[in-house]
Design a protein around this nucleic acid. Structure first.
Lengths: 250, 250
DNA sequence: AAATGGCAACTGGTCAGACCACTTTATGAA
DNA sequence: TTCATAAAGTGGTCTGACCAGTTGCCATTT
């Protein structure tokens, strides 16, 4: 039957991968040179290179100019990344895109929480809120998260819970501890505390609109603060395209 | 300090990835041809191919012989489920949860589109809108989707694009063709057309608030309509896990 | 007018061979 | 022995050619 005619490069990538997995090639171990592989597998070097790039993309190998390619360290981290995460991580702009979306969803969560929170929900939110009040800034990050999570779950919309959870994970991958860096700064902390209070009270009083407004403003404020800090501390990082190697010699 | 002279292929891969993000390229969307990319980025086609293989390895793109390369679907992966699609599929209630979230995000998308749409975006939205106007209800589903997609992408927030795409996929998995079932009903169609017109005009006039309100109302209206229909046709389905749509008229 | 078939003109897939840039190693002079 | 240097080996890039699917256009046929 029709075998779909798999591209050779794809096949070679798989072969090399199997060679690594089955064939005893250990991490750090050097794999044959491109020219050698091409010869041994009976394909052109271009194909081998494309296959190696594929494997590099998969995180299977590392390549060093003039030295060779090596089997990558395999880290069996449980926190596997979805393609979505891969796509976004590393791009600074993404952080603000994420915050832009969160701004909306946290607002909605707060609104729904104000409408739907059961007495148990209210109790949990209150507990989280109180814990957050009496805590040092270091622990604060986790408590802050707990507070917001309690609110989101009080919305009783599992989709919302899940999406916000994903967005938070993405944020953590994009830039670690940015939020944490924010906390210590006194004036910010004061403002954030105030936001939290507003959100909390609105939900408790069952005022959907106020809750939404407060939560939205909260995220936006955090976002803007981060942007300011970034612009002050690393003005324009912009990992721009590497200029084509410019002949510095002569 | 020494910048280690990053390989061009690596840089190009990142640039293309960025092109997907900044350019707001949506899943399924075609990316420029290899020859075109090579020309535009001032490198050889080999480099572009290696970069594309890298991206393919990362799961960012899919490539088809003779057709081109496309932004990969983030959602569907046989064994590797997105965090999102874990629990939900099959539960009718989820549909309304999804719509509840969409309501918010579509609103935001419309607002941002009104603020950020370039002339090219406006042109595309107009084209989609016009196409939708002069079409029979059968084709309408796809055109409706195209219209909303154009708006979302005009928001220039890739995160928003992907999240909404995921939500839509989830909706399709939850219940097929619900929206399509809605269209034929004359009174609904009239209303929906009117909503679309409002959204369209607000974006074109650059009125963020109005655009957001209109888009939010639109989704909410669709949601409520579906709920009514459902309650009429299958009274009380509520939170029961609805296995596959076994549709027998009666 | 509609269906058919075939010919461009796209697109990606593969190959060959040539250089360039970097690392390691062997070489040979001090 | 030491050390600079050449040589050899490795990955990095370019060019241009050709093969192989896909798609749309258009004349032909029905």
């Amino acid at each position: 039957m029709n075998q779909k005619s798999v591209p050779v490069a794809k096949a070679i990538a798989d072969r090399i991968e199997r060679l690594i997995l089955d064939g005893g090639l250990a991490p750090e171990e050097k794999i044959p040179s491109e020219r050698q592989l091409a010869l041994r597998m009976g394909v052109s070097r271009s194909i081998v290179r494309e296959a190696l790039h594929e494997l590099h993309g998969r995180g299977v190998i590392e390549t060093q100019h003039g030295r060779g390619s090596f089997v990558a360290h395999i880290v069996p981290e449980p926190g596997m990344e979805t393609p979505l995460m891969r796509l976004f991580t590393g791009h600074t702009r993404t952080l603000y895109d994420l915050l832009e979306v969160r701004e909306q969803l946290e607002g909605q969560a707060a609104r729904l929480a104000a409408q739907r929170a059961t007495s148990r929900d209210r109790h949990r939110i209150t507990k989280a809120y109180d814990a957050m009040q009496a805590a040092d800034p270091l622990t604060n990050a986790g408590l802050d998260h707990a507070f917001h999570l309690a609110i989101v779950e009080a919305s009783h919309n599992p989709v919302l819970v899940h999406v916000l959870d994903s967005l938070k994970s993405l944020m953590l991958m994009t830039v670690q501890a940015s939020v944490t860096n924010l906390s210590p700064r006194e004036p910010f902390k004061k403002q954030i505390d105030q936001h939290h209070r507003k959100i909390y009270q609105a939900i408790m009083k069952g005022q959907p609109q106020a809750a939404q407004r407060a939560a939205t403003a909260h995220v936006r404020h955090v976002s803007e603060s981060m942007r300011e800090i970034e612009e002050n501390e690393h003005p324009i990082i912009r990992s721009g395209p590497v200029s084509r190697h410019s002949h510095q010699n002569g």
